[in-house]
Write a protein that binds this DNA or RNA. Structure first.
Lengths: 161, 161
DNA sequence: ATTCTTGCAAAGCCTTTGCAACTGC
DNA sequence: GCAGTTGCAAAGGCTTTGCAAGAAT
């Protein structure tokens, strides 16, 4: 949420419907999908399947676990969500309408801080070019302790984990 | 395997025994652990639990699945192995005796190409410094198609996935 | 002797899937 | 009405764990 949004011309729902409609064999846009898309793009930035299910249940949106997983997969495929493979659960974040970025992940409070550094992409492009490696994408997480957690624990330890 | 080894003063086994001996409550060095350490540091560079079990079985080393997982955890804790959280299975690689590095991961043949780029660490340090974030480590994977696989498929597609 | 480790099988956790009922188009 | 979707519960894949037997110090 810390980065400026990218200009988009369609709503997430419109983009998803377009995705569904243009599959080799057209897929359907259901009530459950509509609710999920609306819910996800109204607030969440980073979440996993469990958190989403819990939050939706709290807000009275009834979608089964199976459907949630199936819809998340479609949203990723449609380019609306990005998968973040961190820890035991797959996390998701908005892709559509957000710029590419990487994350600082606090190991104490689990917070994710987004950042952008064009230099990193440049270095990656250079490396891949040297190796004749065709880039599809990258994953970069920096693990550590965020400023607040650091303050809270009184800077006791300065060693690396 | 592509990067030069770092000078180390102890054998992996010696370092592991030291780790075990210096725990709050001393842990024991067993025959199974000895065989695993010898096996892992005699050849493997990247592997997951299943591959290790299979390879050891092929070579007549009998260690149960549970013990393999338990020992891998200790080897990581001891600083002998590094965990690579990529895909559904946890992968491991040598940590002790190897320099820090990142990976290009071929999505076709699963090969991992190691590379080192001090600039990346520098950028990460800068970002963390700005955010008052205390770094514990980072994970960087670049997904894509390696030169050989690219050649094999005849450069048909140049689009990104 | 004591206490940690092993192996087995069972359980755990996250995610996927088979299938009958249902629903968007 | 056809073809894709849902929900349930069961299965899957990887990893962890309880426990009794065994081994290291």
């Amino acid at each position: 949420m810390s980065l400026p949004a990218v200009a988009v011309t369609q709503t997430p729902e419109a983009k998803f419907r377009e995705y569904l409609a243009t599959r080799a064999r057209a897929q359907r846009f259901t009530e459950q999908q509509r609710e999920m898309v609306a819910y996800i793009f109204s607030q969440h930035s980073h979440f996993d399947a469990e958190e989403l299910l819990d939050a939706m249940k709290r807000d009275g949106i009834r979608v089964s676990r199976a459907t949630a997983y199936r819809t998340l997969a479609k949203l990723v495929d449609a380019g609306l969500l990005r998968r973040l493979e961190i820890g035991p659960r797959t996390h998701y974040e908005h892709d559509y309408g957000y710029p590419q970025h990487d994350h600082l992940v606090c190991t104490r409070c689990k917070k994710m801080i987004e950042f952008q550094r064009p230099e990193i992409d440049q270095v990656i492009r250079d490396v891949c070019s040297e190796h004749l490696f065709q880039i599809a994408g990258h994953t970069l997480f920096v693990r550590g302790v965020c400023a607040e957690c650091n303050r809270a624990r009184g800077n006791r330890r300065l060693d690396l984990v």
